[in-house]
Amino acid sequence: MLEFIQDNIQPYFNYWVYVILMMIGLWATIAKNNLIKKLIGMSIFQTAIILFYVSVGVKGEGSKIPIVNPYTEAKSAEVVGADQHGEHGAKGGGEKYIVEPDNYANPLPHVLMLTAIVVGVATLGVALAVVQMLFKEFGTLEEDEILAQIKNADSASPDV
C-alpha cells in the first residue's frame, strides 16, 4: 500500500488533487437541486482546472517565479544591436543576457489562468444575476420546483 502511494500518487499528487476537486465540482453541478449549489460546484470545477494548469508550469525546487532579474543573469560576450537593430546603429548596442529557462517557472499557464480567473468572476456574476431573476420570478431556487411551476404554467395555457 505504501509502495503504491509512493510510486503512483506522490509523483502525480497535483493530478490526483485536480481530479478529486473536479469530481466534487461535477457532482455538485449534476446532482444538486439548488441553483446556488450548482454554481458553487461550477466554481470548484473551474478551480480544479486552474490548479491543473498552474501545477503543470512548476519546474521543481530550483525554479523561481517567472520574473527575469537582468542584474543577476549572466551576459554573453557577443554584442548585439548593430546587426539586429541596424537602423539605430551604436545606440541599439548592448550585451545579450543569457536566461536559463529551467531557473524560472513556466509563464504560459500563469498567463492563461490569470485571465481565466477574472473572466470566471465575471461569468459567475452573470450567473448570479440570472439566478436572482429566477428567484424574483418563481420565488424559489430549487430546480424541481421551478420546473414544476413552468410545467403548470404550460398546461394552464397550452397555446404558449
Binding site: I67, N69, P107, L108, H110, V111, L114
Partner: peptide
C-alpha cells in the same frame, strides 16, 4: 522583466 505581463 515580468514575463507573465509581457506574454499577457
Amino acid at each position: 522583466p515580468n514575463v507573465v505581463t509581457a506574454v499577457l
